[in-house]
Amino acid sequence: MRIGELGGKAGVSTRALRYYEEHGLLRPERTGSGQRIYPDSAVDRVRLIQQFYAAGLSSRLIERLLAGIDARHLDPALLERLAQERTRIADEVAALQEAGRRLDQLLDIAVHPKESCRAADLEPLTPSTGRTRRSLRQ
């Protein structure tokens, strides 16, 4: 199939497919005139690539993963790298949850104002992490 058809079936733009090719994630065959030709399996490949990007992985890491998947063997170092990515994402989620709690406090102060709105009315942040003491205990 040609690039436009693959894009339609996989739900991505042809620009995205060209990007995947530039980064070694997708390798089409070429006709004599240079047009890209993809096998039917490319639809699943593109969807897998999209899932990896949605998980926050870099093109370089995705390329390594795809090579391991193609070889039917993931190197233990690569598995460790994925575990590190999972930890990074969990840390980002925790930071966003803390930001949400902080906004809840600010909204509460805004909706139920006291005589003055002072920083002392908020739960203190710890200097090293920027998180509140309560969030560190949880």
Rank of each mutant, 00 (worst) to 15 (best):
G130K: 01
A99N: 10
E123H: 05
R45K: 10
E63F: 04
A119C: 05
R47K: 14
A99C: 07
R101S: 03
T129S: 15
L66V: 08
F52A: 05
G56W: 03
S135G: 03
I109L: 15
R45C: 00
A99D: 09
D75E: 15
R60K: 10
R134M: 07
G130D: 04
R102L: 04
T126C: 15
E80W: 10
T129I: 11
R60P: 03
L65C: 01
G56V: 08
L48N: 02
G130L: 01
E98F: 05
D44Q: 09
I89N: 06
G130R: 02
A42L: 03
R118D: 14
A94Q: 11
L57H: 03
A71Q: 15
D108G: 08
A54I: 10
V93W: 06
Q97Y: 06
D70N: 11
Q50M: 13
R134L: 12
E115Y: 06
I89T: 12
R102P: 00
P127Q: 07
L122A: 03
C117D: 15
T129G: 06
L82A: 00
T132R: 09
A67K: 13
R47G: 05
L103T: 10
S128T: 07
R60L: 10
A95F: 02
I69Y: 05
G56Q: 03
R47C: 09
K114W: 10
P76K: 02
A120N: 07
L125P: 00
E80L: 13
L122V: 07
L78N: 00
H73C: 10
A90W: 04
A71S: 11
L122E: 01
D40G: 06
R133C: 05
R81L: 14
E115N: 08
T126Y: 10
S135T: 05
Q105I: 10
R102W: 02
D70Y: 06
C117L: 13
R102V: 04
V111C: 04
Q50F: 04
A110G: 06
A77I: 13
S135I: 04
L74N: 01
C117I: 13
V46N: 00
A77T: 14
I62M: 02
L65K: 00
L107G: 04
R72G: 04
L122W: 00
V93P: 05
H112A: 09
R64S: 10
R88L: 13
D121H: 14
D91S: 11
T87I: 12
I109M: 15
L78R: 02
A95C: 08
V93H: 10
